[in-house]
Every structure is written in structure tokens, then in C-alpha cells.
Design a protein around this nucleic acid. Structure first.
Length: 424
RNA sequence: GGAGAGGUGGCAGAGCGGUUGAAUGCACCGGUCUUGAAAACCGGCAUGGUAGCAAUACCAUCGUGAGUUCGAAUCUCACCCUCUCCGCCA
């Protein structure tokens, strides 16, 4: 959510800023609503003040044993007026909230212009895509002999699921553990175990609701839960409704969790293999920081995700998402794209975002600024470090041998119980 | 799942229909005293909103929502959460 003060004081500025994303804000409708809200608010406050004064007077008069019938009568009339104004105010407020909740974050000045993916800017590249002396296979062809089973998954759960058995299941587990350990040991994150079912309020806090409900899986029954689309949701909500002491910041959490996404609107995209699934695992990093350090933290966080790919010796590039491609919660996002030989291109494996105060405002996550002595909103960042399923895909494809066996990256051998080569 | 108790400011804890945004203690901040510290004493100390240059004034908030009432932290209902006991389980 954007700062309501900013919306009031500089509506055209906000509209211009949002236009960078291609988002159209109806400033006139907004201003009109705001005007109405203000009027109703002032009216309601006035009526309440009068009513309160009256009620007090009644109390005093009664304690003195004086006549109160007249006061009661005027109080009653005030009550009725107030009721009407309150109803009007509520209706306006609801419209305004809807509007505000629908607004995306304001982009950082450094975000490149552009409408879509094609305008994203490559920031740096690491590693050389390996040239193969044979035609490299994709992860499905490589995985199936090793225990990657889409047919079984289809029988159990349908499309966009996978079953892995044997060395692949183990590799998947090894990757997740390796990443978690790396972030905890080398990067100072606190490991967290979190719920995978969350209330709607948690999703409103991080911004997936109300706008992106179609991407989520909802669980039927009472109470209604949602399956988390990313561990960002429970991790970031750890600070909801908190006022943190300044010395506790930055908070850095990392969790390994499954993620559930309906992939509504992705029909036909990446239907083969494990690239786009309804259920996938991810190691997620979240930082809660002081506002002045959030952009330094974004660089740091992105670096932490890169460390994973470097340790696995997977070629990748870092891309600064352009205005039109940046998610609506984020003020600035870097994607990490890993090299996939079968596709002969880089594919997203991590996304690192600075949400500034956008989520913090929705969550009422604050810290006490020693300079002002006041509670102020924190900045929140999140990044995958990294997607486990896609990392597995990248390892299979980049480490494949002519005979279809897979060399285990040296960083993972210990996690694989010493196994250095995957074969069936 | 059954029975009971409870959710009040940073924490502890009173208040249970009327000048109560809320006693008291602790913590915290400022001051007096002191060579310094502690103690003692004095003062301050929730959040958000609106108006105002400001002092300040007003409004909202005592788990959440709805209701009763001229008036609700206080009464009613629903929901959420916590604790204790019993049952059942991983």
C-alpha cells in the first residue's frame, strides 16, 4: 500500500510515477472520493464531539440530581444524525480502500523504463555457458531414467506436478539443505520453520491479496486457509503489528518451504518438465531493515542468491527488471537467470525485491527510530535463494555427460552422502 | 472433542455503565541532589487521524466485529487468540 499522505499531497506525482508501469490512476475520481471522505470525517468528528460533551453533561447533571430530560433528547437527535453520517463515511471509506489496495508500489528511480521483459537490463554475467560435444538433453529426458516421473504425478495430482524418486529426490533434498546451510552459516540468516497454510490477513499484509487471489490455492473449510505461494508470506508477516527496537534491525530470515501456485493465466507456458509447477520448493530469504539501508540490503541479498549459483558453478546473469516487468509489490527487482543448455538461454531462478514500506504499511510493521523517537515503517525485502526445483533442473542440464549421467557439483557431494555421479 | 479461566499502555496489573485514554508498580527519558554512580525526590512517557505557523483543540483505538444505551474498557452476541484440566492422537 502506498502512503495515504503522499496520495493526498501529490496525487498527480503518484499518478505519473505509476504510469511508468503502465498503470492508470484515475486522479479525478480519487480526488473526488478523498474530498467526500474528508467532509464526512469532519462532520462525523464534530457530531461525536457534541455527543460526547452531551453525555458528559448528563453524567454530571445526574450526579448533582439535576433534570436531564432535555439533554437526553438532544443526544438522541445527535445519535441519529451521527448514524447517517457514519454510514456514508463507511461506504466512501470502502471504495477508497479498494482503490488504494489496488495500487502498485512506486518504482525506484534506478528501475529501467520499458513495458515488458524485453526491456529488462542485464547487470552482470557470471560463468561461461559450457559447450557440449553432443546435443544436450533437457532435464526431462535426463531426469526420467533417474526417477523423474510425470506420469505418476499425473495419475495422483494431474498436470504441473512431479514425482521424484531415488537419487533425484535426494538431490532435491541436498540442494535445499545446502542452500539453507549456506545462508545461515555464511550470510547471517536465522533459519525459520513456518506455516504453509495462512490466513487471508497474512496475504493482505504481503500484498498477494486482494489483487492476486486467482494465483493462490484456497483451502475449503472453516477457517479458510490459503496455501502459501512463497515463504515470503509467513516470513515477512513475522513482523506484522510489531514495533521493533532499532538495535534488532536488520532481521534476516531464511526458510525452506514448498510453494503452491495455481498458475492461472500461465496455460500453455512451460508445460513440459519442472519449470512451472503447482507445487515447488524454494529457499527464501527475507530481510527487515531500516529504510535508509534497504537499497544496500537489496544488493547484499541479491549477492547472497548469487553465491548459491556460484557455489554450484552454474552460469547465470543478473537482470534489473524494467518498469513494466517489476511485480506490483516491489520498488525494484533483480532477477537471477540461470543458463539452461536445452533452451540455449537464461531462465529465471531467483527474484530479489525491495518492497520498501509497501508491505510494512499493510502489515503495520514498524521500528522505533531513535532519531525521532517515533515508530516508523520498516522496509522489507525478499529473494529466492534459490528455487530448488529449478536449481535441480539447472544442475541436471549443466552437469550432464554424453552418456546421460550427471556429475554432482562438488559443493553437493557431501550432501549426497559422497555420491559424485548420478546414474540409473 | 468436553469443561473452566482469561485477553487493558513497552511489561506487570487495577478499573466492570457516566467529567476514564485509562489507577498503581516496573522499565524508559529529562531534571534536582552527588566527586561519579546508586538511592531518593520532581517532571515526562501509547498509536493513528483532522484543523493550526505553533501552543493546542477535537476524533478514533482497552483481542476483532456487530449490538444495547443519551453515554461502553465496563452490558449482550459472534468470532479470533491464550492458559488450565480431561479425552484423543504424530
Amino acid at each position: 500500500m502506498l502512503d495515504p499522505k503522499l496520495l493526498r499531497s501529490d496525487l498527480t506525482g503518484v499518478a505519473a510515477a505509476l504510469a511508468r508501469r503502465g498503470f492508470v490512476l484515475d486522479t479525478e475520481a480519487f480526488a473526488a472520493l478523498e474530498e467526500q471522505r474528508k467532509g464526512a470525517q469532519i462532520e462525523a468528528d464534530r457530531l461525536r464531539a457534541e455527543r460526547n460533551a452531551n453525555a458528559k453533561a448528563v453524567g454530571i447533571a445526574k450526579s448533582k440530581g439535576e433534570e436531564v430530560a432535555g439533554l437526553l433528547k438532544s443526544s438522541e437527535a445527535l445519535g441519529e444524525q451521527l448514524h447517517r453520517v457514519e454510514q456514508r463515511l463507511e461506504a466512501i471509506q470502502a471504495q477508497l480502500t479498494d482503490l488504494q489496495m489496488g495500487l502498485p508500489n512506486i518504482l525506484h528511480a534506478s528501475v529501467p523504463e520499458g513495458r515488458d521483459e524485453s526491456a529488462n537490463v542485464e547487470v552482470r554475467r557470471w560463468g561461461e555457458p559450457k559447450s557440449f560435444a553432443f546435443e544436450p538433453k533437457d532435464h526431462v529426458a535426463l531426469g526420467e531414467p533417474l526417477g523423474m516421473d510425470f506420469e505418476a504425478a499425473g495419475r495422483i495430482s494431474g498436470a504441473r506436478f512431479v514425482v521424484m524418486t531415488g537419487v533425484l529426490a535426494k538431490l532435491h533434498r541436498a540442494l535445499a539443505q545446502f542452500m539453507l546451510d549456506l545462508h545461515v552459516r555464511e550470510h547471517g540468516y536465522r533459519e525459520a520453520y513456518v506455516p504453509y497454510l495462512v490466513h487471508g490477513t497474512a496475504l493482505i499484509g504481503t500484498g498477494q491479496l486482494p489483487k492476486f487471489g486467482q494465483d493462490l490455492f484456497a483451502v475449503h473449510g472453516e477457517p479458510g486457509f490459503y496455501l502459501i505461494p512463497t515463504a515470503e508470506v509467513p516470513l515477512t508477516n513475522l513482523v506484522r503489528d510489531q514495533i521493533l527496537a532499532a538495535e534488532r534491525l536488520p532481521l534476516k530470515f531464511v526458510a525452506h518451504s514448498p510453494c503452491f501456485r495455481s498458475e492461472a493465466g500461465a496455460a500453455g507456458k512451460d508445460t513440459r518438465g519442472m519449470i512451472r509447477q503447482h507445487q515447488f520448493d524454494k529457499v527464501e530469504m527475507v530481510q527487515i531493515v531500516r529504510p535508509e539501508s534497504s537499497y544496500a540490503a537489496l544488493e547484499e541479498l541479491t549477492g547472497h542468491a548469487e553465491t548459491v549459483l556460484k557455489a554450484l558453478e552454474l552460469p547465470y546473469r543478473v537482470v534489473a527488471l524494467c518498469a513494466g516487468d517489476t511485480g506490483s509489490l516491489s520498488a525494484k527487482t533483480y532477477d537471477l537467470e540461470v543458463w539452461l543448455p536445452s533452451q540455449n538461454r537464461y531462465r529465471e531462478i531467483s527474484s530479489c525485491s525491495n518492497c520498501e514500506s509497501f508491505q510494512a504499511r499493510r502489515m503495520q510493521a514498524r521500528w522505533r527510530n531513535p532519531d525521532s523517537g517515533k515508530p516508523e515503517l520498516v522496509h522489507t525485502l525478499n529473494g529466492s535463494g534459490v528455487a530448488v526445483g529449478r536449481a535441480l533442473v539447472a544442475v541436471l542440464e549443466n552437469y550432464q555427460q554424453a552418456d546421460g549421467t550427471i556429475v554432482v557439483p562438488s559443493a553437493l557431494v557431501a550432501y549426497m552422502g559422497g555420491t559424485a555421479l548420478l546414474k540409473n
